[in-house]
Structures are given as structure tokens and as C-alpha cells.
Nucleic acid binder design. Sequence first.
RNA 1: UGGGGAGUCGCCAAGUGGUAAGGCAUCGGUCUUUGGAGCCGACAUUCGGUGGUUCGAAUCCACCCUCCCCAGCCA
Length: 556
Amino acid sequence: MSTTEAPTRQLDFIREIVEEDLRTGRHSTVITRFPPEPNGYLHIGHAKSICLNFGIAQEYGGQCNLRFDDTNPTKEEAEYAEAIKRDVAWVGFDWGKNLYHASDYFEQLYRWAEDLIRAGKAYVDSLSAEEIRELRGTLTEPGKESPYRYRSVEENLDLFRRMRGGEFGDGAHVLRAKIDMASPNVNMRDPVLYRIRHETHHRTGDAWCIYPMYDYAHPLSDAIERVTHSLCTLEFEDHRPLYDWLIEHVPVPARPHQYEFARLNLNYTVMSKRKLLRLVEEGHVRGWDDPRIPTIAGLRRRGYTPAAIRSFCDRVGVAKRENVIDVALLEFSIREDLNLHANRVMGVLRPLRVVIENYPEEKSESFDVPNNPEDPDAGTRQVPFSRVIYIESDDFMEEPPKKFFRLAPGREVRLRSAYFITCTSAVKNDAGEIVELRATYDPSTRGGDAADGRKPKATLHWVSARHALDCEVRLYDRLFRSENPEESGDFLADLNPDSLEVVPQAKLEPSVRGAAPFTRFQFERLGYFCVDPDSSAARIVFNRTATLKDTFTRRA
RNA sequence: UGGGGAGUCGCCAAGUGGUAAGGCAUCGGUCUUUGGAGCCGACAUUCGGUGGUUCGAAUCCACCCUCCCCAGCCA
């Protein structure tokens, strides 16, 4: 009997920590959280965090909270929060009843701030923002203490309460932690905990005019929710000492720990909320769900599946080193999924008429065509055929080069699932452009096989002209020309002018009629396409999700 | 020239002192009623560099180099 190797799954460093904590009993259950700020749409980088946080909760039988980090009313909107919930659910995760908001904790957070004041660990500073900045020192020089640093507890309490009461204007005072103005870590130089903002909050309305800073609200919110592993990106590493300081100096009910991992970057695109916002607001793309941007909404509209996004996130890994993932990996993930699950259909993007001269004028017949060769259970459909068909203009060349196996004068090819045809001539217009092909078919090849065993070197997709459905097809290319659009300084200058090409009159086989928005197909030999919500009963609009690899084109 | 991180194949990423996993990309071949998919194969004598410890180092030590982050009353 052979010893079966225990297939020790390769864990990323965070899962290793989680397992260790579970094994040693530091925690008996794992609680994570996904903490978006509702100030923009989620993108593929957030998907990585979602998959990590919810994935860990799932794998270890724990829980993952969806918590909105809504501590800054000037930037946040309910509309964004709704979009975020929709996107998280769509990616495939369920927070159940664990939907929270940092704003739910404002009262508790406030009380703890008073506790800090009473403990002499926080004080009201009345310096201006500029003065605070000046006294903070620099990266190499220590800061200086504020003249207000040693106010009495009573005065601090009084001032802080009056801040809450609305007695002061924005910026008049802030609450600061009393830590160490000489700390080499600037985050520890008496960080601001609360600021005054007379602003209506999308959830608490006008109940508050002081709002906690992220650095204050986050660790305490984690503790309130009994989060065990608080996962964030690398730029917060410097904030961990402050996170820990607060957990230590506030009487919180639990001891969460923060761990940092590298955020996801993708080449040929931009990922920061600020840049995505500019693309949307300045009209460089059609909206937050434009299929060319890496927002979850954009990817969804482009035709990506939640499963593809999840497998992509799995493949990308979790580590601490900066990374730029090749967008080809994202494309691979969607092709892999759609190859198995998308039904095939024939559609011609650039139609070239072909008249099959020996096929009767009035006749038409239909072929039983498999919906998905990768999945026999997908069944078949009827595809009509008649004397005049369209083929892809790229599939014909009057003078074919060496490796071109498709149609050419005198050459025989197979029409997928139909007949073999032989091109007899090309009809040109006055400008010398080919406008139509003449051909003959071999009736004995019905279905696409020849009794004599001859095998054409090419199989073409086609659509019966008489039965074709006119559709709009939107072809997308990368939004930016360079791998790193931000490198040059002005990412907008790097926009690809050809990122969207609209084909207004593509010819599709009639079976796609009535397909609902977001239905995905493979157009044989062309790529994967998804019905866009812009579609109407009169006309379907398709988005190209990804191309199929074309080795002839690639070599050419 | 303060502090915090990181450097393993073109892009990711395992590896935790015993002689460099895997994925994507790429390149061959095979198969094919999608030039798709699939299948088979190739792809780091070497782990930022230099010394050292050791029978043995990507893994330990020392020094050096490079890159990223931090001076919002943003998150």
C-alpha cells in the first residue's frame, strides 16, 4: 500500500496565519471584512480583496462582513453603496445579515474618544490645518508639539463636546491622539482622530458634524465586529502601529490584527478610483459600466462571468510584492469559462455575399447544429441555409498567400455544418473591390462531410442572407496603448483612439433573436460576445468579450 | 541621508538548510466539421549583488544595490 501524500495545499501567507491562529487557539473562528468606501465603483482590484476576505471566511467556516467605511460624508453617496452591494453579490459572495457601516458605530466611537481624552491620550487641537502640517515635521525631522497639546482633560472634554454640538465651524478644531511628535513614523505624530465637517451624511443625515478619521474608525470598527483578521493593502503597513495603539488604549471587546497584502495591478489599464472617475466624468468612456474599464460593472457588461473573475483572482495569488498582472491572464480566465459554457452561434461581422449558383433559387433547408461541442448536453439548434449566404470577408482572398487555407478562386472549403462550396469567381465593382462571390456547392456533402473522405483545409462560418438578423456589434480593444498608462504622467494622452469599433450591420443567424441582455455566445471562429442591455426588440447589440485566438492572423 | 515594505523565468507565484512546483505568455508538434478548444513537448545549472557559515544555501550571517509606500482635518 502506497502512502498517499497529504496534498498540502499551497497557502498564501495570510491563509497560513489564519490556519496558525486557528490551530494554536488564538482564535476559534475567523471573521474578516470587506470594507469599501462608498465613493466609487468597485473594480477588479476590489474583486481580489473580496475573493480573499469572503474566500477565507468560506474556507474556514467563518464569516465575512460587508462594512462600508463611510466616515467622510463629503465624498460618499448612497448610490455607490448600492452599486457596491450589487457587485459583491454578483461576484458570488453573500454577507448574509452581516452588512454594517462604520457610521453605525459613530456613537460608540465618540464615547471611546471621550475615554481617550479622560485617559490623557487625546486632546483637542485648535491649530489650522496648515499649522498642523508645519508642526508635523518632515520624513527626516521630528515634529513639534502643538501649543494645545497639554490642555486639561476638562477643557478637552468641553471642547470636544462643543465640537459635537456644532458650536464650531469646519476646521476650527480637531481631536488628536497624544502619541509622539518625534516618532520616525509620521502616522504616530499625534494623528487626527476627528474633524469637524458640517455636511449631510448619506446615512446619518445631520446627526453629526464631527466625523472620525479612517485611522480611528477602522480598528475600532474591526474590534466591534470582532473581526479576527483585518486584511488591507500594503500602503497601510505604516498605519499598523496606530491601529495597534488604538486597540490597546481603547477598551474594545476584541483584539483584531491587521495584515497587509499587495494590491492587484493590471497592465494596459488604470485602476485607481480617481483615474476611473476622471474617465467616466470627462466622458472618455460611456459610464462606470463601460466594457473597456476594469470595474466589476464594466466587466459584467463586457460579458465576464463571476466564475471567471473568481478563478482569475485565485490564479493571481496573494503576496506582499508589488505586481502587475498581464491582462492576458484575465482574458484566459474568461475564455476558459466561456469555452465550456457559452453556446456557439454563427455571425458574420464583415459580410461578403456568396451566391451559390447551383443551389435552387427558392429552396431553403436547415441544419441541425450542435450548440456547444464541448458540452453534448447543450443540445442542438436549427440553422437555415439558402442560395445566398454571407461569409466573413477576411475568409476570402483573391490571391491567397502560402498559409491561407480559406476561400479563394477555385478552392473548396467547408461551410460549418452545411456543405462544401467551391468559389468560381469574384465579382467586383467599378472600384475594383470584391462585392460578391460566386460559388457552387456539392449536394453530397450535406452536413459537412464528404463520402469520399476529402477534407477541406478550412471550415468557414456563414449566415443565410435571407434569414440573417442585423445586429450591432461593439468590438473592444485595450483602452490604453501602453502597458503602464500612468508612466508618462498623463494617462489620458495614452488613450487608444480605437478602443471601440462599432459594427452596425453584423449578420447573425436567427437563433439569437430574443436573447436577453447578458446572454453570452461564442460566435464561431470570432470570439465570445454578450448581449448588451442597450439591445431592443428591434435590434440586438452585442459586446465582444474576448477574441478567439486566430493563429493565421497572429502569424501574419 | 527618518520609518515601513519588497526583490525567484517575459508576467504572476511556490519554496521556510538537502540540491528551483505550478499558472499565464511564448515556441514547437499532434488532433480538429471553430486555423478555437484539447493533447504532447520545450521554456531559471539558477534565485538583486558580493563575501561568509555549512558536507550542502534561493533558504542562515554580513555588507551593498534596486524598487515601492509614508509628511490629507482622504481611505
